[in-house]
Design a protein around this nucleic acid. Structure first.
Lengths: 327, 327
DNA sequence: TTTAATCAGAAAAACGTTTAACTCAGGTTC
DNA sequence: GAACCTGAGTTAAACGTTTTTCTGATTAAA
């Protein structure tokens, strides 16, 4: 691999001049500029990014920490972030915490030691204060509860869940079972809050029994199934797309006519849900905007490190399709 | 951020000694070792990975180039690769080519200039020879046609498609429509070859008309739909999971009883396909093994740069579920 | 003993850039 | 015409490590 020295020698100039031509530092006369560019071309020179990073103290690399790549919600975010970063000249170092807080912690250290310029994190839990000790700009994404010291991007979960629930109510549902994987995360609890607000809006009493955490293990379907049997709801509100999947399985195992006997409203949305018939009615999160905003916020902070932390909440849409019927 | 100099000063030793303690280079006496470790701890020192990379000429970073993160087949591979890399002390720089060859080319240059130690590429086309000019170890994954100069990991597409088709034949199907997005990729053409072999195995004439490339645009459903109307097959063999999705939509639009009137066999498999009822019968690729093998092959080559290129073909399974019935 | 080999540590070079400091014409300003 | 800028280039320092070379002391071999 040729280095900047080889280019300088071939072009008959100093390495500083080569650098100035390529990085657009200072003015270089047309003749020398031409010589440098010619030498670059004929050697096939590509600057060594590691050396650039060491000297200039930035890597133009963002760390992205995701709980699970396989979930279409997260992979949609990854896609949006990767694209947005690329368009602004940044690359993405991807790590998956696999929903494991200890691994998450280790991975942030590892990313920090690789000198990423900043971090976009979807944490596994609501206490990511330790991220502050990294000495790195951090943007929290999606799971943004617990702290206000970081820039954060998420959706208006309360509002979105309220609108979703109101839609179910408008269709005549009165016993709505809210299914979640966990209630440990504040974004999920906000969805519960929205659900509650909608119920109270029509003077229905909020019954905590109708909010069920199914867990993430294989037993989750069973938990959902038993909750359905016990409470006999006319509609299910699945708090995440993974839970939608679960709900569908439970509905099938119970042999309920769908959506005639039981309606289902999802959250998150995902392309491949068109496999489901009836098509899933769902609250849809603006993936592209979430990712682009997170990336944008991070780069803004790189430019202006001292400005106060911002929180951006985006609105969700309701995609009315076929999985909700009148009871 | 403290540097190795700060540690050395606090511990009262030279920076070489600090380096030897931390990187396990040469023997250091217990006393000095203790002093160094103490200083590291009290300063919260973390080595600067960029400086390490510059000097040692390796970044412990792998470039991963994927056509599309959102497709569960690819995201499954990403997951496997990321995990495998992490377990071996490597990180992953992820880029998406969005099925665009020009972007793919640019991204490889960009990854190379970031000095990744090696590249795992799922190319957009069958002529990735240009990757040889990067001067980097490259492993081709999944779409491995066109050249034998690189290490390659994929599945036995011919065998897998043959087994799949044989299963359809064994169920009594005789008019089987093979749907693909494109026939430009050799891994897809190999699947066609397997399909052909299976037909000829039972003395059925191979009819090229029954192999249809639907494209990747929005019009793809229509193409599939018209092919079904025209040829009236009793079974569809979808060559990828994306095409399975398409096939399901076409079947629905045509109002065919599924699987009674028309059977569907998929390729790739994906977790979220359980949304489909009847459950999709499908050829399943060993995602975890594919990813781990690709990563392993790359790291082996880093150790032994001059050994001849290897090709690893893994076998697929057939998951018999519910979407194939007797005609 | 004398000489050579070994050892633990320090000093210094090197990795490939960017950038600050310097040089030396040529042009201004009094 | 002396002092001062300016401008376009060069030289050299710096980024934070790893690794090679060097040093002086201790140990082993002759």
């Amino acid at each position: 691999m040729p280095t900047i020295k080889d280019v300088a020698k071939l072009a008959g100039v100093s390495i500083a001049t080569v650098s100035n031509v390529l990085s657009g530092g200072r003015y270089v006369s047309p003749e020398l500029r031409g010589a440098v560019l010619g030498a670059v071309r004929s050697l096939g020179y590509v600057p060594n990014g590691v050396a650039q990073s060491l000297r200039s103290r930035r890597t133009r690399t963002l760390g992205l920490l995701i709980p699970e790549i396989t979930n279409p919600f997260f992979s949609g975010l990854v896609k949006a972030i990767e694209r947005s970063a690329r368009e602004r000249g940044y690359q993405v170092l991807l790590s998956s915490s696999e929903e494991n807080p200890d691994l998450e912690f280790d991975l942030t250290l590892s990313l920090a030691s690789r000198q990423v310029d900043g971090l976009i994190v979807i944490p596994t839990h609501d206490s990511p204060e330790y991220l502050g000790r990294l000495g790195l700009p951090v943007v929290l994404l999606d799971r943004i509860g617990g702290t206000e010291r970081f820039d954060r991007v998420g959706v208006d979960n309360v509002g979105a869940a309220r609108i979703g629930t109101e839609f179910l109510l408008s269709q005549g549902h009165r016993r709505i079972l809210l299914l979640a994987s966990t209630l440990e995360l504040s974004n999920i609890r906000e969805r519960v809050e929205g659900y509650k607000q909608a119920l109270e809006g029509v003077n229905l009493k909020y019954d905590p029994e109708l909010v069920v955490a199914c867990g993430r293990e294989a037993s989750a379907v069973r938990v959902a199934l038993e909750a359905i049997q016990k409470h006999r709801p006319t509609a299910l509100f699945a708090a995440t797309n993974r839970i939608s999947l679960l709900a569908v399985q439970a509905i099938r195992e119970l042999g309920l006519a769908f959506p005639q006997q039981i309606s289902l409203l999802g959250f998150d949305d995902f392309e491949w849900s068109t496999l489901l018939e009836p098509y899933l009615t769902t609250v849809v999160q603006p993936l592209e905007a979430l990712g682009a905003t997170a990336c944008g916020l991070l780069l803004e902070r790189l430019r202006e490190p001292s400005r106060p932390p911002q929180t951006v909440l985006l609105p969700c849409d309701l995609a009315v399709r076929q999985s909700v019927a009148r009871p």
